[in-house]
Amino acid sequence: MLRRFRLEEPQSVGEISELLGRFGDSAKLYAGGTELLLAMKEGLVHYERLVNVKGIEGLNEVKQHNGAIYIGALCTHHQLETSPVLKQNLPALVKLEENVANVRVRQVGTLGGNLCFAEPHADPGTLLIALEASLTAEKSNGKREIPAESFFVDAYETALEVDEVLTTIAVPIPAKPSGVCYMKFGYLERPSVGVAVVVNLNADRSVVDDIKIAVGCAGPAPMRVPEAEALLKGKSLDEATRNIVQAGETSGRASQAISDLHGAQDYKEHIVGVLLKRAFHSALSQ
């Protein structure tokens, strides 16, 4: 059962920020509600006020501009899985979105809400880190860019200040020739391990010019794994292919996997390695 709360319906980002600043921890921003309302129904959290942000115009669009895709924080998963702009430029993100939870959650759940709630068992953050996305945080008197990599602080905790609002997710379109792949493993709808790879090859596809690796779900927050990237970056394709198993072990150890209902720590670490190898080869085949 939900307990009573007051509903606030601001009409601008400035108003939202002002409300969040004024009411602090007793207010919570509300968009799709797919995760927040579950926690509230369970009685795990209670807020005196929910600040409904869905009335804010211009935050539910996907736009392409200067080599990047700009995703409004209020875009639903369903919008993203059907976005022609994303299908053309970031098919890996489309595939990820097609497999978030189920059709009803995708219908109302928003990308911004997913990121801000920072539930560890979520997909988008991991891929956005590997894609080097940048998140725009706004408040009444200014805005700043937060790299996806430093957005996730801990389970359910982000780098946002109390009066900051996530408005836009900017994703650079990977330069060609490149491959992007996100793979997950999980029981029912919650992913227990997620791995993302973005690989750039040289012109004749013989050298790994650049690679970004991120792991998520296994530990408290998604993260980039530079020590695994170092085993593959600048290497010939043959050497990188030989090193991928070691990169997988490195990523598994780095994932901060915890033992829980989704699996034991060593099991999750192993799955990270398996998924990294598969995602690497899938990215190469694109």
Binding site: L7, G33, T34, L37, L38, K41, H78, A101, N102, V103, R104, V105, Q107, V108, L188, E189
Partner: peptide, 26 residues
Amino acid sequence: CDVQVCGACTLLVDGRPVSACTTLAF
């Protein structure tokens, strides 16, 4: 289930499926 997993509370809102158990009436 009351947690948007089972689909027994599915309704169509503007033709699209939602979980009524986790949709605020307003």
